[in-house]
């Protein structure tokens, strides 16, 4: 349990922070000043306490250990060898399903992923888009990880086999072999890949710089190499689901083994994959490209959240000249 605690994302914000934010807006500088002082004092206090406090940890073999919080943050099991990481988990075909009708665009999946992989905030291995395909159609949220395609364009073009397709369907990047040509980034039609343009920041190097590297963990990252969503294979080896799946509070994301014909969401609801896809008219992104993604989407029918606000996207488009797939903007 405690392992999971560290691995996963901290979903819930502490209420004191939220309350502080509210007051700031409500009652002006004096009160806000007090809150800030109070809050920071509280924070210092909490930090001290947390650092020193010992926690009981239940290991997988049922033994109880005691450890401080800092130690737990750094816990990672020893990675598998490179050869093993390239082979994959035998007799598995991992698959992910997004139920768009449940997604409210909270981006908790992104946060969970970023925490898990120590990524900086601009690198969203799983990114939540606000989509609006046509004017008459309803807008919806679209979380997009790497699709781990069965006909992966990125892997085809890699000149040195640094990105590879595994037996279990996962496409990984070996950043100890990558030469940084960025051909895979150009080839990926889903813009899934990110490049380490500069040295990883110093905080990160201090935290994870000395960990043994395996393509399965994607960290420590290295300058001049490509990275992307990896379906958390190190978690899968422990029998746990990827960070984004467990981090989703809306139970949007289902994950499982296609060979078992079952996918499970964060609440532990397991459904029969084939039936689930069939009954909900599942589809894949840009099917016409023939990339054969391993990620399915259930259409955003009967949504359980208010429709996305398109104003932000429109504004962003105007200011930064972003272009999306909105056909209504086309004139010819």
């Amino acid at each position: 349990m405690a392992e999971e605690n560290n691995k996963n994302e901290n979903n819930a914000g502490t209420p004191s922070e939220n309350a502080g934010r509210r007051n700031f807006l409500k009652y002006g500088a004096l009160t806000a000043g007090l809150t800030l002082v109070g809050g920071s004092l509280l924070k210092v206090f909490a930090d001290n306490k947390e650092q020193g406090e010992k926690m009981k940890v239940l290991s997988s073999d049922g033994k109880v250990y005691e450890a401080t919080c800092n130690q737990l943050q750094e816990f990672r099991p020893a990675p598998v060898s490179n050869a093993e990481a390239r082979k994959g988990i035998p007799n598995k075909k991992f698959v992910m399903v997004f139920d768009l009708s449940k997604c409210d665009g909270c981006k908790k999946c992104t946060e969970a992923c970023q925490k898990m992989h120590y990524t900086e905030s601009d690198r969203e291995w799983i990114k939540v888009f606000t989509m609006h395909d046509a004017k008459a159609e309803a807008p919806y949220y679209l979380p997009k990880p790497c699709f781990h395609c069965d006909n992966p364009t990125c892997t085809k073009v890699c000149p040195v086999n640094a990105t590879f397709k595994r037996e279990d369907g996962i496409v990984l990047v070996d950043n100890e072999r990558c030469i940084g040509c960025r051909m895979c980034m150009a080839a990926c039609p889903y813009s899934t890949r990110f490049f380490n343009w500069s040295h990883p920041n110093s905080d990160q190097t201090a935290a994870i710089g000395n960990l043994p590297y395996s393509p399965e963990q994607s960290v420590p990252r290295r300058m001049g190499t490509v990275e992307k969503c990896d379906f958390c294979p190190d978690m899968l080896r422990q029998g746990k689901m990827p960070a984004c799946v467990t981090g989703c509070p809306m139970d949007v994301i289902y994950f499982g083994d296609q060979n078992e014909d079952a996918v499970t969401n964060a609440s532990g609801v397991t459904v029969k994959l084939s039936q689930f896809l069939e009954q909900n008219a599942a589809y894949r992104q840009l099917e016409e490209l023939g990339t054969e993604p391993r990620v399915y989407y259930l259409p955003p029918k009967n949504r359980k959240y208010p429709a996305p606000d398109l104003k932000n996207i429109e504004k962003e488009k105007k200011e930064k000249k972003h272009i999306d797939m909105d056909m209504s903007s086309m004139q010819m």
Partner: peptide, 25 residues
């Protein structure tokens, strides 16, 4: 393209691990 490489120090990977499927090769 070598100037454009993120890791020119690994240029020999092209010889060691070169894949004939890649247009770059």
């Amino acid at each position: 393209p070598i100037i454009d490489l993120g890791r020119p120090d690994r240029i020999f990977n092209l010889v060691l691990f070169g894949r004939l499927q890649s247009p770059l090769i």
